[in-house]
Computed example of a mutant assay.
Amino acid sequence: MEDQFKLTETPQLKPKLTASWQAPSNIALVKYWGKHGTQLPANPSISFTLNDCRTITTLTATQSDHHSFEVLLDGKPKPSFAPKIESYFKRIENYSPWIKSYKFKIETTNTFPHSSGIASSASSMAAMSSCIVAMESELTGTKIDKKKASFLARLGSGSACRSLEGKLVVWGEHADTAGSSDLYGVDVSVNLHPIFQDFQDTILLVDKGEKTVSSTLGHELMNGHAFAKARFLQAHSNLTEIKKYLASGDLDGFIKITESEALTLHSMMMTSHPYFMLMKPNTLSIIEEIWKFRNVTKTPVCFTLDAGANVHMLYPAADKEAVEELIKSKLAQYCQNEHYICDHIGNGASAV
């Protein structure tokens, strides 16, 4: 299957190439946690593509006898990114061998705090892979292949393959999702009910610092986890269920699966060996306030969590005013410097 992404055309090398792309983060509803092989998911996942939380990357390639790269974040050298990018280039060279003939300058910026649980690796690797595929298109005279971009992005960061296109994306082989694959994300937006088309995601920034345990290590700890097998089966079942709710507009069913998945993700962290906890006391306070608000007002707002302390509040656009009042009156106090980001569902990567 991977062979379909190997370059068959002969690239006509040019002295210099430049590409600029932006790619958004995404927020998983059914979580992927645990992997095998080379960036392959232990279970399938489904995510909303965000719009405003994005990475903008400009890639400049200069022909050279020796492949090398430098990376700048917000205009400043970022050597701590080097190991991940070096690993990425090694993984993709079998599929895009022309990269070995160039040295690269990677200039990138985020519209949100790096490494704070808003999947910055997803948006950055999606943007980077979009640049690579755009350059490859220029060298071969073929059209840009977004499926290959998703495939390459996965080799940099698993969840990055869900940030290329579509409002709603499935990654991982799933019996009830036609065309699903462990190799790349699949756009399933065609079945998204109108109430979810403009769904809102307000991200409450409980902790904008570096995570104490990386997602990479967290995934590794699922190997041999006492509850791994049951968890993976649960993810398959929950994906089948939530797809039905997303298609029918069943908000109660959506809320049930989404919140359960968030808590399950963190329960896997707390029951691994070694165990760890990424939620903070303020994370729990926000969750309790959301539950209280929903019970009293019947507003269909719910929470989800990524691998971090921050809380994603998901709700229909029609309820935006009520939720903003809740944030200002109750929830902002639990955020670092009362900082939160208002985002909504978007459509994926695009050229800048």
Rank of each mutant, 00 (worst) to 15 (best):
S214W: 00
L29E: 01
G117N: 02
V206M: 02
S47A: 15
N347S: 15
T8N: 14
A307M: 03
H225F: 02
Y275G: 13
L246N: 08
W291C: 12
R231D: 09
A228H: 06
Y32Q: 03
E338D: 14
E289T: 12
T109V: 09
A126N: 09
L183Y: 12
I341Q: 06
S96I: 15
F104L: 15
S123H: 01
I327L: 05
E86N: 13
K84M: 11
I345F: 10
A247T: 14
K84P: 06
K328L: 06
K211P: 04
C335K: 06
T38V: 12
A309H: 05
K76Y: 08
Q22C: 14
D306F: 03
G209D: 10
F112E: 07
T55L: 03
I56A: 12
S189L: 00
K76H: 13
L278E: 06
K256W: 03
Y95M: 01
C335F: 09
Y102T: 10
S214M: 03
H219F: 04
G158M: 05
F48C: 04
L152P: 14
S180T: 08
E289S: 12
M222S: 05
G224P: 07
P83M: 00
Q333S: 15
W33N: 05
T49E: 00
V71D: 05
S285E: 13
D65I: 00
S329F: 04
S181E: 08
A318G: 08
E241G: 00
K31P: 08
G308N: 00
R91K: 12
D176I: 01
L251S: 10
K90S: 14
K211Q: 01
L13K: 03
R162K: 03
N295A: 11
I56T: 15
W171G: 06
K298L: 01
F303C: 02
N94G: 13
P41L: 01
